[in-house]
Design a protein around this nucleic acid. Structure first.
Lengths: 211, 211
DNA sequence: AACTATCGGATAGTTGTGCTGTCCATACCG
DNA sequence: CGGTATGGACAGCACAACTATCCGATAGTT
């Protein structure tokens, strides 16, 4: 398969494919001569995955490169892949360490205890959650900082579904990819479902007159 | 309060404040003469809100302008503000309409029915969820498309917590802002909690040897 | 009243990201 | 054998979000 066929098989333009090759997201094709290369089905799959991570998962190109590297490194244990995928979706200013002890970090620790969770202190979720809580108060909406109880229960349900799906996978070598795709795209799915549920519950609580 | 005081009160640089003024996110200060303006506490609050939406919520500047407009428009009913906030967080390629009937849209409709939700057909979550489902299959991980059951239950829990918090607000004129902040920042909070819960559940299912 | 720092407003420039376009020597295809 | 496609290098582009510079006016100190 040559580059133009790879392009038409995936809908990605040839210049973009060349860009991903340059950036190291897509492995080089097998060179058949000085300036001819052939691409396999695995390149089609990889390219679809790249676009999924970038377009649907919202990852930056450089971040996508990192998680693809984690998928390819078969020596990495699964928990490690999880961590890399988590850090990838968390690759925004949101997750930069909050300096020192804040109300947010305190509340997050309390909730972790209450839920009986066992979470390592470098989990990016801790920083992210603490920052959101602190922001709620900062913008003058401390009432939102109490929204926790429902969210934490829900997060545990989600994580159970996540792990059950990963465990159900029979092909062991595909599990790393499942973990990455599930973690990165799962956020978008949860948000989308939240939008729908919000409208439903909102209709129950504030019934609008039919137009 | 002059612009430099506004700057030091919020930690936002003077050029950035000028930029937000230009773009219409921050209302002009009251002109005391041809080239002197004074800013009030409301400007400090607004500026903090702007940075929260952009930095923590991840909104684009232009999108933040839209939701701020929705907060200010007191004639808008709350359900409308909800919709605008939802569309704001959904302002990525993820939510562009999927053309035609796909497996994803079919599965989303099924889930909506099963959950007994009442969701209008232009809810951005429908497009977003459908696209994620379709992407799961496209990248060769159809097993993830079954992750639904847990997610939908969890989304309903989250939405209940959201609505309960909004309803609990005593100041009616602040409810629109609560809705926006809760919707926009809530996604980040849910994702963060998901990261923590994932690590916890992952430790339960795949206990790692202590180093 | 002079002087200096700061102001608002306008405009231009910078940085980073994610492509896209052009070029060229080579290679395949009819 | 001639036209089209290829790989690779490099420059260019569009957009977003600032950031820097300049200007004449003004506020506050002296």
């Amino acid at each position: 398969m040559r580059i133009s066929e790879l392009s038409s098989a995936t809908g990605v333009t040839v210049p973009s494919i060349k860009y991903y090759l340059r950036e190291g997201l897509l492995p080089q094709g097998e060179l058949t001569s000085a300036n001819q290369a052939s691409y396999a089905d695995s390149h089609v799959q990889r390219l679809k995955l790249i676009r999924a991570l970038i377009d649907v998962g919202g990852l930056a190109v450089a971040t996508a490169k990192d998680v693809l590297g984690a998928i390819d490194d078969t020596s990495l244990p699964l928990t490690c892949v999880f961590g890399i995928a988590q850090r990838a979706v968390s690759d925004t200013s949101l997750y930069e360490p909050v300096e020192g002890e804040t109300d947010g970090t305190r509340q997050v620790r309390e909730t972790i205890d209450r839920m009986g969770w066992h979470v390592s202190s470098d989990n990016p979720g801790i920083q992210g959650a603490a920052r959101v809580i602190d922001t709620y108060t900062r913008v003058g909406h401390p009432e939102l900082a109490q929204i926790w109880e429902g969210y934490a229960e829900a997060a545990e349900l989600i994580a159970r579904a996540d792990l059950a799906t990963v465990a159900r996978n029979e092909r062991l070598e595909a599990m790393a990819e499942t973990v990455v795709v599930g973690t990165v795209l799962g956020d978008a799915l949860v948000s989308s479902l939240r939008r729908m549920a919000q409208e439903h519950i909102s209709n129950l609580q504030f019934p609008a007159p039919k137009e």
